[in-house]
Computed example of a mutant assay.
Amino acid sequence: MSNPQEPYQRGYPSTGQIPAPGQLPAPGQGHTAGHIATPGQLPADGPFGLPGQQPPVRGHRRLWSILGIVAGVLVLVIIGLLILLNIVNAATNQARGLADGFTKLVLSGDTSKAYDDYLDPALKEQLSKEAFIAGVKTLEMDSSCKPAYNNVKAGTENNIKSADITGLITCDGDRNIDLVYRFEGEELKMVNIKLKPQV
């Protein structure tokens, strides 16, 4: 008569034990007595059932994570610098455009419009339109004169935009006139002006 445990003992004749669920022999281990792999146990001849095979090194994963974070931070820093440079360049170009627009009006003889459009109200209180027009006239500038801006600095300090421009107006007959402009405020109006012939 057959034993009711016989089907379960077929693979384990020497032990006579019934394997518990999850306690199956590891691949390649055969049916040797008392050698049943349990969860969390590795067979004696190598992990994953292959002799000599080593488990993957986990240190590489951490290294790549750190490198990825460092690369991400560097990308953000570079983007931030590019944005800052674009802002500074835009402010510098705006300041240069204001200086150029003002100087062209003065050189073309339209000093009244230059006064009205570019001077800040605080400067207008210190310098009347008549005095401004008379002062520009003494410089004897005309359309032969050409401006060159040597230094243009623009920025924001205490939420107040400002721009400082220095340069030289060169006229026929070897006449040179130093120029210094300062613009301030939200719309960048001229708060300081100096036009002086070089001696």
Rank of each mutant, 00 (worst) to 15 (best):
N3V: 00
A148H: 13
N158V: 07
S2E: 12
P56Q: 13
N3F: 00
Q41H: 07
L168H: 05
Y149T: 08
F48W: 07
P19G: 02
D164C: 04
H31S: 09
K161N: 11
T103A: 06
T170L: 04
Q9M: 10
Q53T: 09
A154S: 13
A91R: 14
K161I: 12
Q9F: 04
V199I: 12
G167D: 12
I169M: 07
I79G: 13
T38A: 09
L76T: 15
R61T: 11
Y8R: 02
N158G: 03
P197I: 01
D100Q: 14
D100F: 01
A37R: 06
T15A: 09
D174N: 15
N93C: 10
D45H: 11
A71Q: 09
A99C: 04
A90M: 13
V106W: 01
D174S: 14
G80N: 05
P43K: 11
L195F: 08
P55F: 04
E186W: 02
L85G: 11
I18Q: 04
I18K: 04
T32D: 15
L139K: 08
K146I: 09
K137V: 04
R175G: 02
G28E: 01
Q41P: 00
P43H: 03
V77I: 14
E187L: 13
L195V: 07
H31P: 00
I69S: 13
L85N: 10
A134P: 01
L195N: 06
G109T: 12
P47E: 09
T170M: 02
Q17Y: 10
L42F: 15
P21M: 12
G49Y: 08
L179W: 01
D120N: 14
A90W: 05
G97S: 08
K113P: 03
Y12Q: 13
V57T: 15
T111W: 06
T32K: 07
G28T: 02
